[in-house]
Amino acid sequence: MAIVTVEIFRNIPLIVQLFFWAFVFPEFLPDSISAGSGDVVAGGWWKNLLNQQPAVIGVFALGLYTAARVSEHIRAGINTVSTGQKFAASAVGFTTAQSYRYVILPVAYRTVWPTITSEAMNVFKNSAVLYALSVLNFFAYTKTMREETSQDIIILILSTPVYLIITYSIKFVMAWIEKRMAVPGLGSGGK
């Protein structure tokens, strides 16, 4: 089940997933009243939400998309934790949940932190795509500016550094966290 979910979310482009959640998914929901026409249509409340608060649907779709990718990274991280540690945890009498909570996950998160960092940068960059659902984000506003002024190149060049600054601030903060969390002797830092 988890494999199927992850494969579905990883093999469909983000923008197609956004359209899926916005336009295809409500067709499968039970009937309810649509605020726009007052008629009873399939998934009416979802469509109302799309019209009034597209950001909610956008964040929902982007969240699921990112979650699938992050879960793959974490899985890789859990696989790198040596079986000895897992056995040790159960030998001490931990339940599965406890051994994940206290032994495996703390190590796994630290191992995959660099990929989580790039995933955090990706989720910020991908959020620009949400404008396709008419979410009024930074990208949507610069697009409106371009359309109203026709100063395409200037606005594009001026808005690019904004993205660069935010992306690299995320990277910087994540690197700081990585440094603060580092356990002496664990991973490549201790070799």
Binding site: K125, V129, F139, I153, L156, T160, L164
Partner: peptide
């Protein structure tokens, strides 16, 4: 590399779409 990894792809698409015809 750092430049293109720091900008959203749609921003790049738009930049080139308006820059190339010039």
């Amino acid at each position: 590399v750092d430049l293109f990894r720091g900008i959203p792809l749609i921003q790049v698409i738009f930049i080139f779409y308006f820059l190339l015809p010039k």
